[in-house]
Amino acid sequence: DESNKPILLPNESQSFERSVQLLDQIPSYDTHKIAVLYVGEGQSNSELAILSNEHGSYRYTEFLTGLGRLIELKDCQPDKVYLGGLDVCGEDGQFTYCWHDDIMQAVFHIATLMPTKDVDKHRCDKKRHLGNDFVSIVYNDSGEDFKLGTIKGQFNFVHVIVTPLDYECNLVSLQCRKDMEGLVDTSVAKIVSDRNLPFVARQMALHANMASQVHHSRSNPTDIYPSKWIARLRHIKRLRQRICEEAAYSNPSLPLVHPPSHSKAPAQTPAEPTPGYEVGQRKRLISSVEDFTE
């Protein structure tokens, strides 16, 4: 099969070098950035008060330690540790928490760990991170309901609301924008112990962030949302095809390698009803078989 044979790379090609550099910018793992907010007593309706908090309760602090690993920003190499735009020179604080497994990295933009500057009256330095995160974990210690939209931002799609209760338990629920209701189930609340709260809140936030990324990708319907490693695979396959075309153009005697095509017509299947918005969006999480067989 010609399409699977190794090909020689061009010795000097600026377009090839640019493509390789672009490939280096696509990590081999999925990345997520999640905002974390603490809401104190009497702050449920005040964005400024929430963003001005420099610490929270003892249970909130224990919750943070379970979310991930504490890292010092100045020691991080952005090409190895995903920071979601946090500055490593102290502009966004000294520490944050991050978490990773074999296929993804997540960083938490924690408002109480970011510096509260006197010259920044409206807390814009914090909002440029927190307001651009799709998902926020809100530790609501106010005793009042927290409403979506209290923290203004164009991309605040989903809130994971943590409400501490007695007996070391917590109520965990989801809020989302109306255009996200087909992807996020907000109907079920959970009672979770303090011990298990970081794991549950983190998983709910990661799932909500993946759904938000799919939702946000609708602005470019021709580019369905893939995982990062599938995006790398697609980029490599496009690069291979372009090299083959350039080689055939410079030397017409060489065969032009095309991806294999299936001449056999697909079997006719009964027509199915058109899937609704929710089903269609969830299918976009699934990769096409052509990603692996071309």
Score class of each variant (00 low, 15 high):
H32T: 04
F134H: 03
R69Y: 14
G40T: 02
T112H: 02
A189H: 12
Y97G: 03
F157S: 10
A247E: 14
V192W: 01
S28C: 06
L37W: 07
I243Y: 15
D179S: 08
R195Y: 05
K152S: 14
S136K: 04
Y29G: 04
T61C: 06
Y97V: 12
N209V: 06
P255Q: 10
D125I: 08
V279E: 14
A106E: 04
Y60H: 00
E2M: 09
L130M: 09
S142E: 01
F146R: 01
A106M: 09
F63E: 00
N53F: 00
S142P: 00
Q94W: 08
Q25G: 06
G40W: 01
E294N: 09
R202E: 01
H216T: 06
H32A: 14
C89M: 10
A248E: 09
L256Q: 15
F108R: 01
A267E: 12
I71A: 07
A35N: 02
A111L: 03
L22W: 08
I224F: 12
E272K: 08
D75A: 12
P78E: 12
S52F: 02
D79E: 10
R59N: 00
K117H: 12
Q268V: 12
A49D: 06
T222R: 08
P266W: 06
L83E: 14
I230T: 06
S193N: 03
T96L: 09
G131L: 15
L206Y: 05
P275L: 10
Y277A: 13
N53M: 01
L256G: 15
V39H: 01
L256E: 15
A248S: 09
L23V: 07
K228S: 06
E246R: 06
L51R: 03
D1Y: 12
P115D: 04
E144W: 02
S261H: 11
S253D: 15
N132D: 12
Y97Q: 04
V138C: 02
V119I: 10
M210L: 09
L70P: 11
A106G: 03
V160K: 01
L183G: 02
P255L: 05
G85Q: 09
L285A: 14
S217D: 05
T116F: 07
A49M: 05
Y139D: 00
R242F: 14
Q105P: 03
K264D: 15
Y38F: 03
W229M: 07
K228P: 05
I110Q: 03
P10L: 13
V279D: 15
D101M: 01
T222N: 10
L174H: 01
D102M: 05
R195L: 06
V184L: 10
E144R: 05
S250E: 13
P78Q: 14
A208I: 01
Q105A: 14
T65P: 02
K283W: 05
A205Q: 00
R240Y: 12
S187G: 10
S261P: 11
C244L: 10
R59C: 00
Y139C: 00
A265H: 11
K74Q: 09
Y60A: 01
Y139K: 00
C169K: 02
N220F: 05
F16I: 12
V188Y: 06
V88K: 12
K147H: 12
I191K: 01
P252A: 10
G66M: 02
L254E: 15
E17V: 10
T269F: 09
T150K: 02
L206I: 08
V214W: 15
Y277V: 13
T186M: 06
V160I: 12
V88D: 09
A271Y: 08
K178S: 13
V138W: 01
S19N: 12
V20T: 09
Q154I: 13
N140G: 00
V88E: 08
G182K: 07
E47L: 02
P259I: 12
S44L: 03
W99F: 08
N170T: 03
A106N: 02
I50E: 02
V289K: 14
S187H: 06
C89Y: 10
E47C: 01
P266F: 09
P221E: 10
K152T: 13
Q241T: 10
P273D: 13
N132I: 02
P6R: 05
Y225T: 14
L37T: 02
L64W: 01
H122W: 07
Q105S: 11
H55R: 04
Q154F: 13
A205F: 00
K5E: 15
E278T: 07
D145H: 06
I224A: 10
S57L: 01
L174Q: 04
D92L: 09
G42S: 03
D92E: 12
D166F: 01
L171A: 05
Y38R: 00
V39K: 01
S3E: 14
K80A: 05
Q94T: 11
V158E: 01
E72Y: 09
C124D: 15
Q268S: 08
L148Q: 13
F95W: 07
V160T: 01
I230E: 12
T96C: 11
L73H: 13
A248W: 08
K147D: 13
D179H: 08
F146E: 00
G90Q: 11
T112I: 00
Q281T: 13
K152D: 13
M104E: 15
S173K: 10
I191F: 04
E294L: 07
G153Y: 04
L23G: 07
S263N: 14
Q203F: 04
L51F: 07
S261T: 10
S3N: 13
D75K: 14
F63H: 00
V81D: 14
L86I: 11
G42Y: 07
T65M: 09
N11D: 14
I50P: 02
L83F: 07
P164D: 00
K264Y: 12
V192Q: 00
G68N: 03
A265R: 09
R242L: 15
A231G: 14
G149L: 02
A265G: 11
L83R: 13
E47K: 01
D1S: 11
L174K: 02
I34T: 01
I137N: 00
P226Q: 07
F155M: 13
I71T: 09
K126W: 04
K117R: 11
L83N: 14
Y38E: 01
Q154D: 13
H216Y: 15
H258T: 14
L51V: 03
V184G: 03
V20E: 08
L22I: 06
G280E: 10
L113M: 06
L22V: 05
S263L: 08
S227T: 13
V162I: 13
D223A: 05
H216L: 07
V88C: 10
R218I: 10
Q105F: 09
V257S: 07
L22S: 10
G66P: 00
N4G: 14
P115L: 02
E168H: 11
S19V: 12
P164R: 00
D92Q: 13
Y29H: 06
T186L: 06
H109Y: 05
S46I: 02
N156I: 08
N220L: 05
C176I: 05
C98T: 13
G40F: 01
D145A: 06
G276T: 13
D75P: 08
N251I: 13
T222S: 11
W229R: 06
I34Y: 01
V88N: 11
G182N: 05
T61M: 11
S187D: 08
I151H: 02
H216I: 09
S212D: 00
T116D: 06
S263M: 11
Y225R: 09
Q14M: 10
F95M: 05
L113D: 04
